[in-house]
Amino acid sequence: MMQPVDKIIFGDNHFFGINHMSQEKAQQLAEKFFDISAIYAVYKTAIDSGIKAIMLNSNERAKDICKHFKDNKSKYPELNWYPSIPYPHKYANLISEKGIMATINEILFKNNTPIDAIGMVTKGGIGLIGKDAVKLMQMLIDVEVKMFKGLNIKVVFLQNIITDLMLGYNVRIIFEEYCNYIRKKHHATPGLITQNMPILKAKLEEWGIEGVVICSSFNKIGYLMSPDIDAYLEAAKKNDPTKYQLMAMSTLASGAIPAKEAYEFINSQNIQSVVFGASSKKHIEETASLIKI
């Protein structure tokens, strides 16, 4: 029986120049939030409007954001944190510049020295991790989660680019070990972000992996929903929320669907949680009031 997650979670895409529909919009956002105090101001507005849960990707700026919330704990009410890891672009760029081995070395051993890593170095470095993907994954998780330590971490999500890549490999042990490690080491609920929710959910069931939060795009036009919208509707309908909590993202399909219409659809589904992003008081309050799941 898994613990329910927050029904409404405040996301972060809008802070980091991410917009699927327009480059221009994305650039405007990046400019607007260049000054990190503009980000804190939006968080303040959201929290004043009753938001109690925050999803945040482990990118470079997230470090400062986490620090801000740790340093100013007394100024904010109790908040639940939903980190997503890793920041995929960091890895993609490093790998194309240096190759895979050098990237892993840099991420594990430069600037970051997790306790286990020191052991590894003295025992002969990365070569020894060789073949043990689980150990390697655990070390990478620790590096990514580090910035959130000290905050109240509810769920640790794996980004869709990694989840879906691994899903294609059809290797149970990686998913099993991820979930176990998040529970045991980080005392949080494991989460998986995916663009293939029905396929992932069926696999987890087949493998007997339960107690997972599955976060996926969920919108009435079927945007970023593979294989298709009908499979999503079916999977959600049949879902047992004591085994899997379903979290919807991209509910407005990057703005293609008006909020009222979008949440009427979401409210009619068997979904346990919604993550959304907005910058103005009006939009935040409007969205929060429309979500009735």
Binding site: M21, D164, G168, S254
Partner: peptide
């Protein structure tokens, strides 16, 4: 026309519809 008007869902998504 936005991508949300133009996309065609693929059977399995890893890194963009076109790769599938």
């Amino acid at each position: 026309l936005y991508i949300t008007d133009l996309f065609k869902a693929v059977p399995f998504y890893v890194r963009g519809n076109e790769f599938t």
